[in-house]
């Protein structure tokens, strides 16, 4: 047993060392700053207690950013997860051109977010292909392009985000599917189970830890949505997100104490969300 404990600590040491060396101080420091009126480039600051947190709840811009973030998370994750799983199931089977499909679906995840966001800014604009396509299909896109209207800007960014990330999560599901023992399917087939039954009673339950990973990671990433917004709309047209707010107030208006408080508030929200997901979904399996 003692050997096991030692081994556990030893094996986890790369992380423990990295955490202590590089992350512990920044995390504590910014947590501390959240209780001060620290401004970047000013050496002196005062302890203000919970004032930043109280002000955040009164700050219309922050509340709006938080609501947008929730819309973003709730509006993208179910789609991304389901589409990624379907794609993984489709390309897992032996089909002609399997590698081509797999790489093709993954390619959007490869390019840098900044570049993708610039490309879509064009595609969504009044003479962009997506805009013209929407027109051809008889829809009525806003006249100045998708990104310059409060009705469609956030939705357009969400759609792009789903497009960009399904390939990556498909890959994770593919790896997860490989871990399911083939014998289980064979045994089920012998027992006369239908494809649907096999999916519901073997694939889904056994894939659960991987699904948990996909949902938790995707939530964490989506709660921190920033680059797309920074490049495409700079938070205008109802697209400001929590991290965009943090960036604006912390690095642009130099209210770093305030921004740190906002970051920790966001952290608490993400943590609650993730723990709920981990708790609810993990339990099913064991």
């Amino acid at each position: 047993m003692k050997r096991q404990i030692l081994a556990g600590n030893f094996l986890a040491s790369p992380w423990i060392v990295t955490f202590l060396a590089f992350w512990l101080f920044p995390l504590f420091y910014s947590f501390f700053l959240g209780f001060t009126d620290f401004r970047l480039m000013r050496p002196d600051y005062n302890w203000v207690g919970w004032e930043n947190y109280i002000n955040l709840f009164r700050d219309k811009a922050f509340i709006e950013a938080l609501i947008n973030t929730f819309i973003f998370v709730i509006g993208t994750i179910p789609f991304t997860t389901v589409i990624a799983l379907i794609l993984a199931l489709l390309v897992e089977k032996k089909i002609p051109g399997q590698a081509l499909f797999r790489s093709g679906y993954f390619v959007p995840s490869i390019t840098s977010m900044v570049v993708i966001a610039l490309v879509f800014t064009n595609l969504y604009s009044r003479d962009g292909y997506l805009f013209l396509l929407a027109k051809m299909l008889g829809m009525h896109p806003p006249e100045n392009g998708f990104l310059l209207s409060s009705k469609t800007a956030l939705l357009s960014i969400m759609a792009m985000d789903i497009w960009m990330s399904v390939g990556y999560y498909m890959l994770i599901f593919l790896a997860g599917l490989k871990a399911i023992p083939e014998e289980l399917y064979e045994a089920a087939s012998v027992a006369g189970a239908s494809g649907r039954q096999k999916f519901l009673h073997i694939t889904l339950p056994l894939l659960n830890p991987v699904t948990v990973f996909v949902i938790v990671i995707n939530s964490i990433k989506s709660f921190q949505v920033f680059t797309e917004i920074y490049v495409m709309t700079k938070g205008k047209y109802g697209t400001s997100s929590a991290v965009y707010f943090i960036y604006e107030s912390g690095l642009n208006r130099f209210e770093f104490g305030y921004a740190s408080a906002a970051a920790y508030l966001l952290f608490v929200i993400i943590a609650i969300f993730s723990i709920l997901q981990l708790g609810l979904m993990q339990r099913k399996h064991y």
Binding site: L40, M41, R42, L251, F254, F256
Partner: peptide, 8 residues
């Protein structure tokens, strides 16, 4: 940002 961070 790079300037601001360096100065502060």
């Amino acid at each position: 940002e790079k300037i601001v961070i360096a100065f502060s």
